[in-house]
Nucleic acid binder design. Sequence first.
RNA 1: GCGCAGAUGCCCGAGUGGUCUAAGGGAGCGGCCUGCAAAGCCGUGAUUCGCGGGUUCAAAUCCCGCUCUGCGCUCCA
Length: 454
Amino acid sequence: MIRLYDTAQQSLVPLKLRDPGKVSLYVCGPTVYGPPHIGHGRMVLVFDVIRRYLAWSGLEVTFVSNVTDIDDAIIERALKEGREPAEIAVKCETVWWQAMERLNVARPDHIPHATDYVDMMVDLIGRLVDGGKAYTTSDGVYLSVETVPGYGLLANQSLDQLIEGGGDREIVGTEKRHPGDFALWKLAKEGEPFWPSPWGDGRPGWHTECVVMSLDLLHEGFDIHGGGLDLTFPHHENERAQAIADGKTFVTHWMHNGFVELEGEKMGKSLGNTTNLLDLTEKFDPRAYRLLVLQSHYRSPIEVTDPTMAERVVAIGRLDTFARRTASLVPGISADPEIVDQFRALMDDDFNTPGATDLLFRQVREGNTQLDEGNTEAAAVVGANVREIAGALGLELDESAGAEAPAEILALVEQRSAAKQSKDFDEADRIRDQLGALGWVIEDSAAGATVRKA
RNA sequence: GCGCAGAUGCCCGAGUGGUCUAAGGGAGCGGCCUGCAAAGCCGUGAUUCGCGGGUUCAAAUCCCGCUCUGCGCUCCA
């Protein structure tokens, strides 16, 4: 039985599925107005791991994650740069998927785009207006939060408390009936992109798309709705409010991942280039970021700094080395069911990935010991364990033993072996240094010398 | 101000009532292996878990207060 922390219930609860054996998961994707940052990276890695694990554990997963391709931020940038909003959205989305590929984040089963759902959003808003849950002003249509029972559930605060706080906040839209009311439809200003609606040409507000898209693709009462911690309020609260106002059963569980911190501070978009996900994956092995994310619990804050990343690069190397050592010991051998069960127990407990990586590394040590002692069969089983766990977590291990080294490198390895043979160690060391300068590391073993890239 | 998290060794981070004389990774140091390395293995490292009280036979783990940090309080993953 899988347990997870449900933000709405503020406690660990058993995962309750609408349809036995199937799990429907919706995660709020990016608004495509700029390059993805490491915070996005953590979010997608967290839910990629959850999705992979649910599938690994035998559930039929339907994973939906949207792209918000119309939004104030996109329009703002378009106006500033004199470009079309759609052009920016398309370009940014391309970059987004590049980053996802580098991180080995699997594509969602469905990737709905907000602009493809405007008609359905207009329908929803129409129903809300007709039902007296929403009203029009001179600049758009607003949802009346006072008509929604339990508004503030995710924020864990009453409407009054929500309004009292945030002292320096500017309350926009003076025509609003309640300061907490939020825009469902925004009438277009000069030069802004628009779609037709009964209330005038305009565009949908931020939260409406996710309600419409998740319910369209996953239907009422789907299982899990996820996203970054900061989306809890207002975004998710407002999605929920619309679904409730529309008389829909929305979602069973809410999950939110914790934030990325840079040396104890909130990640800011101007804090330097490693906050850009593409830069980070350029500078470090992208798998190191996945490992870093895995090694802390998804709800905890994580420190993403050069040193913490560099540490994971080394740790990934350790996994690769082990994968190489066990690559072809006993083909087709199965993992130890007991270890697999241990992994399952850890992950079933609110996706305890730190515990799982703990198990993974202890297995690596065990396997290395078996190898050193020449217990091939035992080592092969451990190798299978490691592959099983790493695979379930989306960690790809590099098993290539350097066979793809160019001929000139292999020739140098031969020369060195010959030099060693004739006890010409000065020459052997000279060649080793030469290889090192070329970016190759030589490793001796009973079976002979091999090279790998540094 | 209100709400939610968090504070663990040199660093990153698990652990949420007894198996904790506190995992795993990284760094350091010592050793084995090696011609020397690399890789791997072994050993070493918090008598202690932000501070102060309390509950309990038993607390890093529960309760109260305090300090500090992060997040949210209307469009930020």
